[in-house]
Design a protein around this nucleic acid. Structure first.
Lengths: 337, 337
DNA sequence: CTGTTAGCGCTTTCAC
DNA sequence: GTGAAAGCGCTAACAG
C-alpha cells in the first residue's frame, strides 16, 4: 500500500500538518524539521494523493490545451512545448478539442474546468481571438494563457510572434531578389495571423514602390486545396506574376502543384514562398522559402507563465514576443544578373 | 456554490446513498425514485465532484495516451480518434510523451498512473511492442489498449491493421502495372509495421515470380531524410529499378526529391509508392500512390474497448483488425501498352 | 429497494 | 514554529 501523509508524520515524528507544509513548500518550518520530513518522504516513497489534494484545495495540477482543428504539425508542436514545460513542474496536460463555432463552447469548457478542477487553460488560434469567450474566462476567473492573439492586452498572459514583421521581411527578401510582380494568397479570415501577414506584404510592397495587382491576390483558408485553387486562377490569368507569397506552406504547396500541372517550372517560371516551415516545406522539391516560427518555444513559454501565475510568481518580465526566422530555399529565384 | 450530493438528496427526499446509486447507474433503485432524483439533479445542476469520486473509488474517469515521437500527423489522428470516443463517455484524455528507451519508463508511467488514478492507457508504436513494458502493465494491473502491436495476443485489448496484406496488395498493383524491377525502402527497425510491410512486398514479388535485387532494398527509419538518402544510393547505382515502394509516405517523398534532383521524372523515369496516406502524399506532385489506414477509427475503437472494460462490458466481439485502402495516384506509371 | 455510518488523504482553521 | 480537529464530497460496507 502506498504511504500516506500519516505514515510520514509518524516516521518523522511530526504532525501531519507539518508534513503538509513541507510538501507545499510553505514557510514556517524549521530547517531541521524540514530535512527530517523530507528524508521520511524519501524513505517511504511517499507521493501526495492528488485526488485528496484536489478535493480539499480545489486545484488539480492539471492544465488543459484547447484547440479547434489546427493543422496537425502545429498541434503536435504546441503540445510538445506545453508538455515539456509540464514535465518540469509536475503538472499534467489534458487536451480538449473544441468547436469554436459551437454555442455551448462556454458551457462545455466551464464544466470541463469545474469537473476536473483544471488549474488553467492554454488557448490556440482561432480561440485566441474569441473576445466574448476570453471575457467569459476572465469573468469566471478561469486562468488562461493565450497563444498568438491578435490583440495584445498587457494584463493578459500571452505569447505572440512577429507575424507582421516576418511577412514584411520575407516580402522584402523576394523584392531584393529582383521580383516586382508578386502575388499573395491570404489565410483563413478568422485567424488573426492572416491579416498581419497580409499587412506585412502590403507595406513592404508599398515601401519599395511596387504596385499590388488584385488579380494576383487571392483569398485562401490555409488549406492545401485553397492554395491549389488560387494557383489555378492565377495561372489562368493573362499575365502571371514572377513570385507568389502564400500565407502558409500548405497553400504554397498547393500553388506548386497547380504550377507544375500547368507546366510551369519552379523557380524558373515562378518563385514561391510560404510561411510556417511546416514539414512539407522541405519535403517537396524545390523546397520552400518560408518563415519559421518558434511554435514549440512559444507554447512552452505560454505554459510556463501560466503555471508561474499559480504559484504567484511573475514571469511577465520575460519576453512575450518571439522572433521568426527567414529561411530561404530553392523555390525563390534571384532575377538579378 | 455548486450543488453537492447532499443538496440533491434533500431536494429529492432520499438518502445520499440513493443519489450515489443513481449517479453510478447501479441496480436496485425504484424507477420512480430514480426519476425523482434525476429531476433534482437536473434542477440543481448537480455534477458529481470528480476529486471526491476519485479519492473514494480510486478511479478518475481519465485515460491517457502514451506515445514516443510518432509523426505529427499520425499523432493528431490517433488523438482525435481517442478524444471523440472520450466525448461520448464523459472520460477525459491526458497525454503523456514517453521515451521508450528510457530506463525509468516503467517508474514514470507507474507514478503517473498512480498519481492521477488513470483508469487506463492507450499505447502507440513503438511502445506497442515493448514486451517487458506490457508485462509490467499486466503485472501491476494497469489497464491498457494497444494500437498496432506486432504480436496479437487474444487476451489483450488491441486494434491492428492489415499491414502485411496491404503491402502485398500494393506490391501486386505495382506488378500489375507492368513493373518487374521494384525496389523497397524498409521502415524503422523497431516498428513492427516495418517487418510486416517488407514481408508483404517479399511475398508478392515471390508469388509473381519476380526476383528481389538487394541493391534496390535499403534500410530506412520512416524519416524523410532516410528516404532521401536511400534514393541517392539507388539512383547512383549502375542500373535503377522502374519502381520503388517506400514503407511510408515521408520516405517516398524523400525519394521523390532525390529523383528530381537527379533529373529523373516521376513517374516516367521511375514510379513511386508510399504507405499511410499522410498529408504529404497528396501535397506533392505527382501525388503518391499509397495505402490509407483508418488510423483515427482504429484509435477510436481502441479507446472504446478500453473504456468498455471499465464498465465490465465486452466489446471484444467487435472486429479488432481494420482494413486499409489502396489509393492509386499519379506517381505510379502503367508500363503495359 | 433504501438508509446509516465510517472514512478515503489531504488542507483549512485556529489554537498554542 | 507546530499541532489538533474538522471536514471537502463522495462511495464502501453493511444493516434493514
Amino acid at each position: 500500500m502506498a504511504a500516506t501523509i500519516k505514515d510520514v508524520s509518524k516516521d518523522a515524528n511530526v504532525s501531519i500538518k507539518t508534513v503538509s507544509r513541507v510538501i507545499n513548500n510553505e514557510a514556517n518550518v524549521a530547517e531541521k524539521t524540514k530535512k527530517r520530513v523530507l528524508s521520511s518522504i524519501n524513505k517511504l516513497g511517499f507521493r501526495p494523493n492528488k485526488s485528496a489534494q484536489s478535493l480539499r484545495s480545489k486545484r488539480s495540477f492539471i492544465i488543459a490545451l484547447l484547440y479547434d482543428n489546427p493543422n496537425k504539425a502545429y498541434l503536435a508542436d504546441v503540445q510538445s512545448g506545453i508538455f515539456n514545460a509540464c514535465k518540469l513542474t509536475g503538472y499534467n496536460l489534458v487536451i480538449q478539442e473544441c468547436d469554436y463555432k459551437s454555442s455551448d463552447l462556454k458551457k462545455t469548457i466551464f464544466e470541463f474546468v469545474e469537473d476536473l478542477k483544471i488549474d488553467g487553460l492554454i488557448l490556440t488560434p482561432p480561440l485566441s481571438d474569441m473576445d466574448d469567450f476570453l471575457e467569459y474566462l476572465d469573468k469566471h476567473k478561469i486562468e488562461h494563457a493565450i497563444i498568438a492573439p491578435s490583440i495584445l492586452k498587457a494584463e493578459s498572459l500571452y505569447v505572440s510572434s512577429n507575424d507582421y514583421e516576418a511577412a514584411y521581411t520575407l516580402t522584402s527578401e523576394i523584392i531584393k531578389h529582383g521580383h516586382k510582380n508578386i502575388g499573395f494568397i491570404k489565410g483563413h479570415p478568422k485567424h488573426s495571423a492572416s491579416e498581419l501577414r497580409f499587412n506585412g506584404y502590403t507595406d513592404a510592397m508599398q515601401n519599395y514602390g511596387l504596385k499590388k495587382n488584385n488579380s494576383w491576390i487571392k483569398q485562401g483558408n490555409f488549406s492545401f486545396k485553397s492554395g491549389f485553387d488560387a494557383g489555378v486562377e492565377i495561372f489562368n490569368s493573362i499575365k502571371i506574376p514572377t513570385a507568389i507569397f502564400a500565407s502558409n506552406d500548405s497553400m504554397a504547396a498547393g500553388i506548386m502543384k497547380s504550377a507544375q500541372m500547368h507546366g510551369l517550372k519552379i523557380p524558373d517560371d515562378i518563385s514561391l514562398a510560404g510561411f510556417d516551415d511546416s514539414p512539407i516545406a522541405h519535403q517537396i522539391w524545390p523546397a520552400l522559402t518560408t518563415v519559421k516560427q518558434p511554435v514549440e518555444k512559444m507554447a512552452n513559454h505560454a505554459a510556463k507563465i501560466l503555471m508561474a501565475k499559480f504559484d504567484g510568481l511573475n514571469e511577465q518580465s520575460q519576453p512575450k514576443e518571439f522572433k521568426s526566422e527567414l529561411i530561404v530555399r530553392e523555390s525563390l529565384k534571384n532575377l538579378i544578373n
